[in-house]
């Protein structure tokens, strides 16, 4: 009996030791320390839903500027139509690239509006956290970017993004998404979508640029972000965001 008990205890110790080692290994993995480490989030993007007319020029310009494959979208426009009875109709045909056809039964609609969407370049991005090889990373200026030479194409980041902003590039077979036109911004230009917007619904700039009209808006106005409950701290801010928008 004693021998059996000794044997059992010995086995239990080994089991606990093995389990303990693994748990301690798992606990040593950092959680959210990945996002900030020495990087600054210098830029901010503002979308004014009160101004957007759903023309789709931004989507087309983005596709052309970044050679985005058909059926994939770095940016898109959603149209919301809230009926008098409270029903919500949302659509985004071809990402709004070719504009929107008028809705039938216009008399039954209480309010309608357009909401441009794009990568939020979050301060605490899920996509960066889950990338197993560090191919998705935060640049020193705070842009969330994908290194296509490193990406293994697992798609984990696509699943992790709560905004549906990522897709698998049909030609490169790597994850892809909006870069806020990093290549243009680093040369002192504006992102393509901002440049072509005919009504100024998209604004982009440095947070600390006091000469920019964006500076005053960011300081003085009540703005919203998408899905704040995720804790991702998006850097795309919205003016006039309706509660129905997710």
């Amino acid at each position: 009996m004693d021998n059996e008990r000794r044997q059992f205890l010995k086995q239990a110790c080994w089991t606990l030791l093995g389990g303990g080692l693994m748990v301690s290994g798992a606990l040593s993995i950092p959680g959210r320390a990945h996002a900030s480490g020495g990087r600054q989030h210098l830029y901010v993007f503002l979308v004014d839903t009160n101004r957007c007319i759903g023309c789709g020029k931004c989507v087309a310009a983005c596709r052309k500027e970044n050679n985005v494959p058909q059926e994939s979208y770095r940016t898109w426009i959603e149209r919301y139509a809230i009926g008098n009875d409270g029903t919500v109709h949302v659509d985004s045909p071809h990402g709004g690239e070719h504009g929107f056809k008028p809705l039938p039964n216009a008399a039954d609609i209480a309010r309608s509006f357009f909401v441009p969407k794009l990568c939020n370049h979050c301060k605490q991005p899920n996509c960066v956290q889950v990338c197993p090889v560090g191919a998705t990373y935060v640049s020193k200026e705070g842009f969330v970017l994908v290194d296509e030479r490193q990406c293994v194409g697992c798609g984990y980041c696509i699943q992790a993004c709560p905004y549906g902003a990522r897709y698998m590039h049909a030609v490169r077979h790597t994850a892809d998404k909006c870069t806020w036109c990093y290549h243009r911004v680093m040369k002192g230009m504006q992102p393509a979508c901002v440049l072509v917007c005919p009504v100024g619904a998209r604004m982009f700039g440095r947070i600390d640029d006091q000469r920019s009209p964006l500076y005053a808006v960011m300081k003085q106005e009540k703005l919203q972000v998408l899905k704040p409950e995720t804790g991702n701290e998006p850097m795309v801010h919205y003016r006039g965001l309706d509660k129905e928008v997710r």
């Binding site: 990945h34 090889v133 560090g134 990406c151 293994v152 077979h173 790597t174």
Partner: peptide, 26 residues
């Protein structure tokens, strides 16, 4: 997984250049 990856030839990067904030890297 290898049949699914967009770049299976980079599969071993998960072990060679892992990013430990990712659950997948382990």
């Amino acid at each position: 997984l290898l049949f699914h990856l967009g770049h299976p030839e980079r599969a071993f990067n998960i072990m060679f250049t892992p990013k430990f904030t990712s659950a997948m890297s382990g």
